[in-house]
Simulated scan of single mutants.
Amino acid sequence: MVNKDIAFWSRFKGELIAAAPGLGIDKLSITTAEPFLELKERLLRHRELGHESGFEEPDLDLRTDPSLHMADAKSIIAIAVAYPSKLKDAPVSEPGKRRGILSRSAWGEDYHQALRRRMANLSAWILERLPEAKLLSMVDTGALSDRAVAERAGLGWSGKNCSIITPELGSWVYLGEVITNLPLPADSSLPDGCGDCTLCIDACPTGALVGPGQLNAQRCISFITQTKGFVEDEMMRKIGNRLYGCDTCQIVCPVNRKIDIRHHPELLPDPEVAKPLLRPLLAMGNREFKEKFGSSSAAWRGRKPIQRNALIGLGNFRDEESVPDVANVLRNDPRPELRATAAWALGRIGTAEAVECLRSAYPEEKDAEVLAAIDRALSAQDAN
């Protein structure tokens, strides 16, 4: 990179931005590779408050210092790829055929794959012109904070709902970044565009948005639907029929309301995957699960969370026709988390058949937590 002046890097950056749409990238901007010092302070406070999800990279230095990933890093290329927000020809949810819903970020092809492919094409484009370039791509599972990079690069501002909100695409975007040793001119961050609006905070079903840009992940439905363990009664009621993720704080955002980007075919949803029938999920084996959901990012935690959330959905629908299916889980499923959730669902449905299933399962059950769930479900019936 000897003998390349500021004018060269400015022209190269312009060519890179111009090439982005042809590489499947909707927006591209640049920031420096300086440490994210303010972010580190926020993350420390976040941890002290017990607001982490548990899915994050635990080393805060790795999350905030690009030089730990590339010693001679000079710049970070931030990208955004838009995904659809509307489900066209959505199947109807009706008694006996109740349906769950995946969050919009899980509707199409697994975004990790979609973005990695685009960043590989971006890297190839750069290397063809500058073979000496060093490039390290990250998306979501990388240690760096995608949102912090995108905010500083000016892709969008950090909304009160903790999403990056781009002026053109709203927050319906996947984010990724490429750390590089190329000294590209940095873009400026954008001013806050939320103003006095608090619709996202007001609409959060569980109060997980504890302040502007402050999320208690332990109460966030999106994170709870991805856990594998037992879920408290309060949270199960709030989950509704969500199988994976939660879009409430994005749906109510005024910037997002009329945005529905559909020009990436692999990100378009299959309605039967995005809004699947709940009852068939309960008996679905691993092979069938992978065939149906394997190309979606919702599959990353396996079938247990999806099946547990399907039971929650049937309970919240009070779907009487599903009682035999739910009772079969309570009697025969080897996983205590699912048996306990089935007991809760039968209690919510509350018909005579559901109550009888709870009573008949009790003598055969050995797990203490499942027995406690059956007790709670029966006690709730006695109180009614």
Rank of each mutant, 00 (worst) to 15 (best):
A372M: 06
R348K: 15
S163Y: 10
K290V: 02
R98I: 08
A343M: 11
T141L: 12
P167R: 07
A71E: 15
F289Y: 14
Q226H: 03
F36P: 02
I179C: 07
S137T: 15
P212D: 10
L135R: 02
V355E: 15
L268K: 01
A120L: 15
K40Y: 11
P183T: 00
A106L: 04
A340I: 02
D26P: 02
E364P: 05
L268G: 01
R129T: 12
W157G: 03
I126A: 12
L199I: 02
L282D: 09
T32R: 11
D319N: 12
R376Y: 06
L311Q: 11
E291C: 08
I201C: 10
G302N: 04
S85P: 10
A148C: 11
L68P: 01
V323G: 05
K134S: 13
C220H: 00
N161F: 05
E38I: 01
R117L: 13
I224S: 01
N241W: 11
R152D: 05
S222P: 12
D333M: 05
S85V: 09
N309R: 07
T341V: 03
L281I: 11
C194W: 00
L16D: 01
L37K: 15
V92R: 14
E15W: 00
E266Y: 12
G50I: 05
I77K: 12
N309I: 09
I259V: 10
N161T: 06
P205Y: 06
D140T: 03
D5R: 05
S123T: 15
E52F: 13
E356H: 06
D325P: 05
R279D: 11
F12Y: 10
E41P: 04
K366N: 10
L268Q: 08
E288D: 13
D367R: 10
L122T: 12
Q214W: 13
L127P: 01
D202F: 09
S10Y: 08
R42Q: 14
S10M: 02
I30N: 05
P276F: 02
L115I: 09
S75A: 15
P66Y: 14
Q218C: 04
F55C: 12
S297R: 12
Y83A: 00
V178Y: 04
F223E: 12
G142P: 08
W125R: 09
C246L: 11
A368Y: 13
S163V: 11
R47L: 13
I165T: 01
V273W: 04
T32Q: 08
W125M: 03
H69I: 10
E288S: 13
F289H: 05
M236V: 05
V173R: 10
R335E: 15
A148P: 02
S123F: 00
T32I: 15
L199N: 05
E234M: 11
S171Q: 00
R242I: 14
A377G: 05
R339E: 08
F289V: 04
K4Y: 05
L60Q: 09
L281T: 04
I79H: 10
H264Y: 09
A153F: 02
I6P: 00
M138L: 13
V149S: 07
K86T: 07
I25P: 01
N332W: 04
G195C: 00
E337R: 02
